[in-house]
Amino acid sequence: MQDDLHISASLPAAPSSSASTNTVHLRALRRWWVRPRTRDLFIALLYCSPALLVFGLFTYLPFFRAVFLSLNVTNQAGQAVAFNGLAYYLRILNLDGSGRTEYLNSIGTSFGFMLMVVPPVTVISLGLALLSTVKVRGIQIFRTIFTGSIAISLASAGVIWSLLYNPATKATAWLVDLLQIPTPSLLGYGPAAIPAVAAMTVWSGIGFNFILALAGIQAIPHDLYETASIDGAGRWARFRHITLPLLSPTLLFLVIIGSIGSLQAFTQFHLLMPDAPNTVFVYLTYRAFWYDNRYGLAAAMSIVLFAILVALTILQYRTLDRRVHYH
């Protein structure tokens, strides 16, 4: 409203004949400007501009630049020097006849890692959430303990677990003996290393999964349980027919977020097995980019990761959503 006053005050009061066309323009401009929708558009864009600038500079432009880089051979400074077409993509997917399967293998390793992380962390967290719905004194303390790993960064967890796996501390020597592993550390032996990293990741993810599962359980209306009890439903029947269906949207969310997160895992591989020949796709991308300065190839790998994540999210949403019961 104040903006109107400001505009009309600034208009010329008595224009001379030579300036009349000018006045017509100004009137048209004014009419256009006082239309609330156009004026709101400009003010809205002004308000949105800080975030739009950041999204543009650091999300959307870099994404398109990554697509561009992935189609080119780059020099040491990351500048495109020669158009390369889809050659890097064909290389990654082993469609160029070179027989290099390292990229496909590491995509497989990433999915294997995902399967070692997501089901255990979901089941354990659901169990803990059910356990902590009991009404006993001091339950809040236990809930805080179960939530605790949210506050522990992957880097801190990685440093601690690297010492748990370090033979000098003898913390996991029993496991090395039990599994009859030929190296002094679980991390040194190929087939055991990825599960060892997965165990650390499960530990690290419990807090987040637990707190969401608990919030989901607490959102279930209590009278449903009472009615079911009156009808003679036991503990298991109530879990199977009330808790699980009504919790399924939360569980779907946890599975999708967990899958995306575990496919993006970087920190734990950087800390626990930086030199392992068999590693996950994101870490292989880091090596191509950081150690070999192959920006074009690494950009293509990161776009492949993007495609995998989008496809996985849609697929999981489609297949699991049918089984999900929304309130």
């Binding site: 975030a51 999204f55 500079l57 650091f58 999300t59 959307y60 432009l61 870099p62 994404f63 630049r65 990554a66 880089l69 990351g78 995306i260 993006q264 970087f266 994101v282 991308t285 980019f289 920006y295 690494a298 950009a299 990161s302 776009i303 990761l305 993007f306 994540l309 989008v310």
Partner: peptide, 19 residues
């Protein structure tokens, strides 16, 4: 705004580093 959530950090990382 919401589309920015669809693009994973890794896909913009290399270009952002160069920038």
């Amino acid at each position: 705004a919401l589309g920015s959530l669809m693009i994973p950090f890794e896909a913009t990382l290399i270009a952002n580093y160069l920038l």
